[in-house]
Design a binder for these strands. Structure first.
Lengths: 343, 343
DNA sequence: GTGAAAGCGCTAACAG
DNA sequence: CTGTTAGCGCTTTCAC
């Protein structure tokens, strides 16, 4: 019968004829070990098929090699992109990814439970996905626990947490400009929920692009959604129902854009001939509908990877204590079939 | 400055005027503690805001409260459904979910790396998502490590691992029967990759339904995909290009069905008037395209939850040592707009 | 019912 | 460069 973790550092040490400490040093890649000793130890490790016990390391050293990724109610495609990318990078860095569902926090921000979960498992660091990264109560809580944290898609200067952000406003500006270049002037916009900063930023970009191009902002062309397919469909319905309907609709995320396309298809409006639809994010759904969605790419994978890197650095020795704030400014419009010049 | 985990069991014990052991017993809900003592201890725990250290518990007791969820290359919607559901249930049971990306195993089955990752982190149990759960080399490996494992969507009697499966063949049979009832007789089928058992099972169900209804199997109506949107589009193109094209297409999963719909829309074939399309799984994409997909629901959430339960039981005391094999037989067809009677 | 002692496997802080 | 000595915070085992 295989026991759980039969080989310990002690046995490796004996086999290699050194002390446990030396083995430990080899394990932790400290370079104060003589080459010949290191080789002996490594041989012993391989021979015995030794695997260090993470729990023991965590207890003794304070570093658990565990990174947390907390989310709340994400769109499926966003979540998978995030998880897959973060995970790949964790693997490369020898970390493990623990996923935490913080959905409780809406039911009255149950701080007790969150604190309990987050502080009992010795996380080396925590990545907060939107919209959690914009919840200042939560940020404060987490800062108190003292876990190094990276905010994805949001910064809050009141806290000393690192962040990786994307310039949503600039991206929305670029996309809107692109629509205008093609000749659209009546451009509908489906914004996100008003309480989220991303909603605001994307709308700002949209409005600024209109203004900069001498197009008046028409409030009748702006409706609010909640980033779901359903709400996009409703929003699209509303915009397509008005007199003198828009020739293009820019939805603040891909799910809503897919909803707009659905709404148009129900009314037998041809895309892009009679109506252009563009989205935001370039998640999986953008390429999984027809016509495929023209959209601004949000570099989710890159941002996830950057977050892992930051935590890795912050956790390492010799960190200066300053939060790292990173801005990803790669704005790309992915051209597909849902966009064309106005009729 | 907040230190990491300042309060220990020792301080709780002092405050409550008992020994560490008693606190430990309260923590682990062992019922050999006097009611009054328990209350004292619980009061101290709350007062000090004590959180047990998972690492220490894992080291001392051998139970880490960590469950692993391993996947390989999943479709985004499947992965999120899985993760979200497993997570919710973990939370209820006080476990944490560690996600592992085992994608390496295609590059020549790098057993060394997988073993290393899996055995150094003391997982209480492991959930293997498809298609990993069908990889017998991997199963053997994992059995050797000795982690209690639940296979999702697959069983292998050669190993003593538990499993939660869905009757894919029956579901495909039901769906095909439904199409036939509506009057379809030329039903195209897009199967999955031939190396996966699910592909085979779904095809079996499809073929059996045809035969049972006196319809001859026409190999020209069966094409192979790889469960991606792209491959569904190609498969759809192929099926729509033949003489006397099918009046309905049954794709072995939703992503491929979405691809078929896209292919049809490109050819301006109206759905469901001229062509019915049905899928399999009922993942998020099914309701996020237009027309929305009629599909057989695979109870991913329920199965994930069951897996967590099984591991929880298997990990607990007093388990009889027998693998648990569970079959989920709730087959539901979700009716949406992509299906109608033949023209 | 409860407590004391002895580690779990590893690393920090010092010696040498 | 390497070894020794102490724990990390908790649970186990065995007394009382």
């Amino acid at each position: 019968m295989n026991k759980r973790q039969p080989i310990t550092i002690k046995e490796v040490a004996e086999k290699a004829g050194v002390s446990q400490m030396t083995v430990s040093r080899v394990l932790n890649k400290q370079n104060l070990v003589k080459e010949s000793t290191r080789e002996k130890v490594e041989a012993a490790i391989t021979a015995l098929n030794y695997r260090p016990n993470l729990m023991a390391r965590g207890l003794a050293g304070g570093r658990s090699k565990l990174l947390g990724l907390a989310y709340y109610n994400p769109s499926p495609s966003y979540l998978s992109a995030l998880v897959v990318s973060a995970l790949k990078h964790c693997r490369d860095l020898g970390h493990h990814l623990v996923i935490e569902d913080l959905s409780d926090i809406e039911d009255g921000l149950d701080t007790a439970i969150i604190l309990k979960r987050l502080s009992s498992i010795q996380l080396d660091g925590l990545i907060l996905a939107p919209p959690l990264s914009g919840n200042s109560k939560l940020l404060e809580l987490i800062q108190d626990i003292g876990i190094p944290t990276v905010l994805l898609g949001s910064t809050d200067s009141r806290f000393k947490q690192s962040s990786v952000v994307f310039d949503d406003a600039a991206a929305a500006y670029t996309m809107t400009g692109h629509l205008i270049e093609l000749g659209h002037t009546r451009i509908g916009f489906i914004r996100g929920p008003h309480e989220l900063p991303w909603s605001r930023m994307r709308q700002e970009g949209y409005e600024k692009a209109l203004v900069d191009n001498g197009i008046e902002i028409d409030k009748a062309l702006i409706v609010e959604g909640d980033f779901t397919f359903r709400s996009g469909m409703h929003g699209g319905d509303a915009l397509l129902g008005i007199q003198d309907r828009p020739t293009a609709i820019f939805a603040s995320n891909d799910d809503m854009a897919a909803g707009v396309i659905a709404a148009a298809q129900r009314r037998a409006i041809q895309i892009p001939k009679e109506l252009s639809v563009v989205g935001f994010d370039d998640t999986a759904i953008a390429a999984a509908i027809w016509p495929r969605l023209t959209t601004v790419r949000q570099p989710i994978a890159e941002m996830a990877q950057a977050s892992v890197d930051i935590i890795s650095n912050v956790t390492a020795e010799g960190w200066n204590g300053q939060p790292v704030r990173m801005v990803n400014d790669s704005i790309h419009i992915i051209e597909r079939e849902s966009l064309g010049p106005p009729a």
